[in-house]
């Protein structure tokens, strides 16, 4: 069987629907969860003693920060699986998670900056937690940029997988930065942060709602990556076909068309 024929046959697998009945259930659950989370953030949770209503921003901030870590964890696991199995689907999952992780890290930095402007009086300070988070953002932006500059698919996937595993080293550094160095940033422990039970419940619901959103985003980005891979495969077929036509002087052969 020719390479072109095998690629066409492999790609003839039906694409998952963008919005089937399962999608309807997931999107409905997402909207309900988000509505409940918003209600709890703005109405149910009490205002904090010192920070007042500005404290409510931290529910969203903590949720997106946690999901950035989770997304980069998925990148690391998918990268290990790719190096082990050499299945491009793992690479697609890694790049999808990396992009969503960068988005969530961006949101973490922006929401933290807005909160910091109100509570600390500055938009940015070179605090260990903030600095290590910015480094994390740069690492995964570099991961995405690196992928754009390697044309060969196998090399790109292999190099990106190694980068994705090594880059994850910064995640525990970000997490423990408030304990290892003197930091202005609040500690990550719920009990040590002095939250009431209503605050903890609001935080849990917000994290669950954003987690569903995160998985929806990763899935959509994964589908885009698979579609792009399929397009890349077809581009190779067309390129080979054009090369065959050039060699045969424009005479079409039955074998070339397969």
């Amino acid at each position: 069987m020719s390479l072109a024929k095998s690629v066409v046959r492999r790609q003839a697998v039906k694409q998952p629907p963008l919005f089937g009945w399962r999608g309807f259930i997931v999107y409905t659950a997402l909207l309900v969860l988000m509505a409940v989370a918003l209600y709890m953030i703005f109405i149910y949770a009490p205002a904090e003693r010192v920070q007042g209503d500005a404290h409510r921003l931290l529910y969203g901030h903590v949720a997106v920060a946690w999901l950035a870590f989770l997304a980069f964890g998925v990148v690391a696991v998918a990268s290990v699986m790719y190096l082990w199995r050499r299945n491009p689907r793992w690479d697609s999952l890694a790049v999808a998670s990396a992009e969503v992780g960068v988005l969530f890290t961006t949101l973490t930095l922006i929401s933290g900056s807005i909160w910091g402007r109100h509570v600390w009086g500055v938009w940015w300070t070179w605090d260990p937690r903030l600095t290590t988070t910015l480094v994390l953002w740069f690492i995964y932006v570099a991961y995405l940029a690196l992928r754009m500059y390697i044309d060969n698919a196998d090399t790109r996937r292999r190099v990106a997988a190694i980068f994705g595993i090594v880059g994850f080293v910064d995640v525990p550094i970000v997490w423990y930065s408030v304990e290892w160095w003197r930091s202005l940033h609040p500690v990550q422990s719920v009990t040590r942060a002095g939250l009431t039970s209503e605050m903890v419940l609001t935080l849990v619901v917000t994290v669950v709602a954003f987690t569903v959103f995160c998985f929806v985003l990763i899935r959509q980005r994964y589908l885009l990556e698979r579609a792009s891979d399929e397009g890349e495969g077809l581009r190779d077929i067309v390129r080979n076909r054009l090369e065959e036509l050039r060699l045969t002087g424009g005479e079409s052969t039955p074998e070339a068309g397969k």
Binding site: L38, I41, D53, A54, R56, L57, G60, H61, L107, I110, S111, I114, W115, R117, H118
Partner: peptide, 8 residues
């Protein structure tokens, strides 16, 4: 600040 944060 709260509105801007969540809007973003």
């Amino acid at each position: 600040f709260l509105f801007i944060g969540y809007a973003v």
